[in-house]
């Protein structure tokens, strides 16, 4: 078995799929070079990211399936789940081997898996759109998150259109990068802006008012902590000001 190592980018991954076909490899797997551990057996081949190759794969996928299927494919990439590369390679092989659009053949394991993972990633995206809690420092609204999957690229447009008239910044603590909106453009940054590092310990009046509201709107006679935790899992609590002692 040989292992194709790509640079961790989506283009790199698509290039690796291209190379599987170009080199007529069947007994192959694709791994992120930054994350992979060296294998004892088999050969490791470094993939050179090539946008011409990656575009061909991407356009081919879109041509044979639908826009929705392409979105699901990308969501699977962002899931960073173990072995997602194997599943997507199997999915791509099935798509390219079929004459008709098979992206809705849910009785095929690779298709079903892709749809299911895309749904998990979609749910995490939705959660982050819900659970981001901005605080205002100087003139910038900023928040930190720790999503299960790499959903930052997916949530940018939502926040951009909603908070078009305020500067904001969202930092992914798990992956150490952030999104910054400067009233004009969205940009990916790898360091937190200076002004957001000041007075993070101080809780604003609005955060405390929000907690007051959160407690007053609860109906104690209907207390149902199981349901509460199901909707707001413990791992997100530290980012929610209403769940903090204030």
């Amino acid at each position: 078995m040989s292992t194709l190592e790509y640079d961790g980018s989506f283009e790199g991954f698509l290039t690796a799929i291209f190379d599987c076909y170009a080199q007529k490899k069947t007994d192959v797997r694709i791994r992120n070079a930054c994350a992979s551990t060296t294998t004892l057996f088999g050969t490791n081949i470094r993939v050179r990211t090539d946008t011409e190759k990656s575009n061909r794969v991407w356009e081919g996928l879109k041509k044979r399936t639908t826009k929705e299927a392409a979105r699901q494919f990308y969501c699977n990439f962002l899931s960073e789940l173990p072995d997602f590369e194997d599943h997507l390679l199997e999915y791509a092989r099935y798509v390219f081997a079929s004459r008709e659009d098979v992206s809705r053949d849910f009785s095929h394991p690779a298709v079903l898996r892709t749809a299911q993972v895309a749904r998990m990633v979609g749910r995490e995206k939705h959660r982050m759109e819900a659970f981001v809690r901005f605080q205002l420092s100087g003139e910038i609204y900023h928040a930190s998150i720790h999503p299960d999957y790499n959903v930052l690229p997916l949530i940018g447009p939502h926040f951009k259109s909603r908070y078009a008239d305020q500067r904001w910044f969202i930092w992914d603590e798990a992956r150490h990068y952030g999104l910054l909106y400067d009233l004009e453009h969205l940009q990916v940054v790898h360091e937190t802006p200076e002004e957001t590092q000041a007075d993070t310990a101080r809780t604003s009046d609005y955060a405390r008012l929000w907690k007051t509201y959160f407690q007053s709107t609860n109906i104690t006679e209907r207390r149902n902590m199981k349901l509460h935790v199901q909707h707001v899992p413990y791992r997100y609590w530290k980012y929610l000001c209403e769940k903090q002692p204030l």
């Binding site: 659970f131 104690t220 149902n224 509460h228 707001v232 209403e242």
Partner: peptide
Amino acid sequence: ICHSYTEDG
């Protein structure tokens, strides 16, 4: 979007 959930769920 549901931004939070109270303790009654």
